[in-house]
Design a protein around this nucleic acid. Structure first.
Length: 483
RNA sequence: GGUGGGGUGGCCGAGUGGCGAGGCAGCGGCCUGCAAAGCCGUAUACGCGGGUUCGAUUCCCGUCCCCACCUCCA
């Protein structure tokens, strides 16, 4: 069965066929780098990372582009605040920081946050500020086609003319007439309050560094135009998939689609939107204050568990966080790891086949049904454990190979685990100390001195080292940092 | 008011016109010196009311509730 995906625009699941055989072009919206990432950004990235991995596993060559919005109202506002009298600097927002320094700094924080849960870098990450000329060209095409106009006042803005584009609303299935009037719409210079800015004229209180010359006067880009300009520059006038969070459907993606289509570009063939992350059923947002940051998650559970949690629900479903979610995810992850440790001790994993179970493949092809894919993974783990208990090493090894293959697709094998990969010499030294303790404990057990054996185990447990007995002797692992 | 998505066992979370995915937690058992890990077993689950059907959680109608978006939003 081939891959089928849900397309927001047509509101249907249909077979995915790329524009160019064997190649997939994917654009998905990244962040406006005005602050630290929150888990919604990371969930979105995990979803599209899994999509990318699945496409690659399916044999496609995938070009992925994710934008960095490094100029916008909020970035300028945060920077301006840092110069204001009475500003109190914090760790996240130092005093007197230029907007471009702020944006660049947070861009790097985002990169670290993505990497911490094993999200691979896109093929390219274009910045809005680096594509002003492409935006100008697009805006000019829209003006020439009669779908955009310079502001009727002297603001220097350029607006998209919503009324000139009958298809406006097609992505979110709304008609312009039915839209609720925007309470904060500032109609100055607009033909219709729903018209949106392609170009924003420079204002005197904004730094000159945040403006560029244009045929319509000095200014800066509107929010939506960058994605149209950059996606088509790197992926072509028409490309396969455009993704992003559900909350970007309107206005952001609707406007992107309108301006690109009105300019004559085919644009995205599939629109994919991931669901929101909620806390006890409500969307996490800073204004409500019900947030947990990626850093806080990583402080509460291992990176691999955090990724498992963020990726475990279907990508279109809402993902609910509540106390205990991460511990549950970690328990599930460790169940998988325990099996691999039993089946492939000490690096015997080399050369095992990563062939995937049919149920897993079918689930992934069915609009990336990760929950069903995880069910297949866990069933393979159980089958493998059963085989181990029956001394059937070949079956166990085969199951382990399949599990490794599935973990690769889900990206769980790529998550860096501190204290595991990079502890180097310290880990080596610790290993000798623990082995010596275990040898003493084995001796105690030999002489049936269980009190002493338990004392050693308890002492190790007290410092975070878990000891488990197996038919082949005791094994140990660091609690919180997998062996 | 408009648009879209939901309400599944203690929790999370798939799915299906009829043999109850999966994970976590719980209980019982096997194994173990004891644990841990693992395996086996274990649940009168599908918001409510009607209808269609031999049979509905799944389809239809009605109804209640929740969530998201309607120009800051992943």
């Amino acid at each position: 069965m081939a891959l089928r995906l849900y397309d927001t625009r047509t509101a249907e699941i249909r077979a995915f066929e790329p524009l160019v055989a064997g190649e997939v072009s994917l654009y998905y919206c990244g962040a406006t780098v005005q602050g630290r990432p929150h888990v919604g950004h990371i969930r979105s990235a995990v979803c599209f990372d899994i999509l990318t991995r699945w496409l690659e596993h399916s044999g496609y060559r995938v070009m992925t582009v994710r934008n960095v919005t490094d100029i916008d109202d909020k970035i300028l506002e945060k920077s301006a605040q840092s110069y204001a009298a009475g500003f109190e600097p914090s760790e996240d927002y130092p005093a007197a920081e230029p907007w471009f320094a702020l944006a660049y700094r947070f861009e790097q924080v985002f990169a670290e946050a993505y990497a911490a849960v094993g999200v691979r870098r896109p093929t390219y990450e274009p910045r809005a500020t680096g594509h002003i000329t492409e935006m100008h060209a697009l805006i000019q095409r829209l003006i020439d086609a009669g779908h955009a106009y310079p502001a009727l006042d002297d603001s220097g803005d350029v607006y998209f003319d919503v009324r000139s584009w009958p298809q406006y609303g097609e992505l979110t299935h709304q008609s312009v007439e039915d839209m609720q009037d925007a309470p904060d719409a500032d109609p100055r210079g607009k033909r219709d309050p729903r018209d949106f800015a392609l170009w924003k004229g420079h204002k005197d209180d904004e730094p000159l560094t945040a403006s560029w010359d244009s045929p319509w006067g000095r200014g800066r880009p509107g929010w939506h135009v960058e994605c149209s300009a950059m996606s088509t520059k790197y992926l072509g006038a028409q490309f396969d998939i455009h993704g992003g969070g559900l909350d970007l459907r309107f206005p952001h993606h609707e406007n992107e689609l309108a301006q690109s289509a009105a300019a004559g570009d085919g644009f995205a063939r599939f629109w994919l939107h991931n669901g929101m992350v909620t806390m006890n059923g409500e969307k996490m947002s800073k204004s409500v204050g019900n947030t947990i940051s990626p850093d806080e998650m990583l402080a509460r559970a291992r990176p691999r568990a955090v990724r498992y949690f963020l990726g475990q629900a279907h990508y279109r479903s809402q993902l609910d966080y509540r106390p205990g979610s991460l511990q549950e995810a970690q328990a599930a992850v460790e169940r998988i790891e325990n099996f691999l440790d039993r089946a492939l001790p000490q690096g015997h994993g080399a050369g095992v086949s990563g062939e995937l179970p049919e149920a897993f493949t079918a689930a992934m092809n069915d609009d990336l049904n990760v929950p069903a894919a995880l069910a297949a993974l866990h069933e393979t783990v159980r089958a493998g454990n059963t085989a181990l208990d029956a001394q059937d090493a070949d079956t166990a090894r085969s199951c382990a190979g399949q599990v490794l293959g599935m973990l690769d697709v889900l990206g769980l094998n790529d998550v860096p685990e501190p204290g595991h990969d990079d502890a180097g010499g310290a880990m080596e030294a610790l290993s000798h100390l623990v082995e010596a303790q275990l040898a003493q404990r084995a001796e105690a057990k030999q002489t049936k001195d269980f009190a002493r054996a338990d004392a050693i185990r308890d002492a190790l447990a007290a410092v975070g080292i878990a000891v488990e007995d197996t038919p082949d002797g005791a094994t140990w692992s660091l609690r919180g940092g997998h062996r």
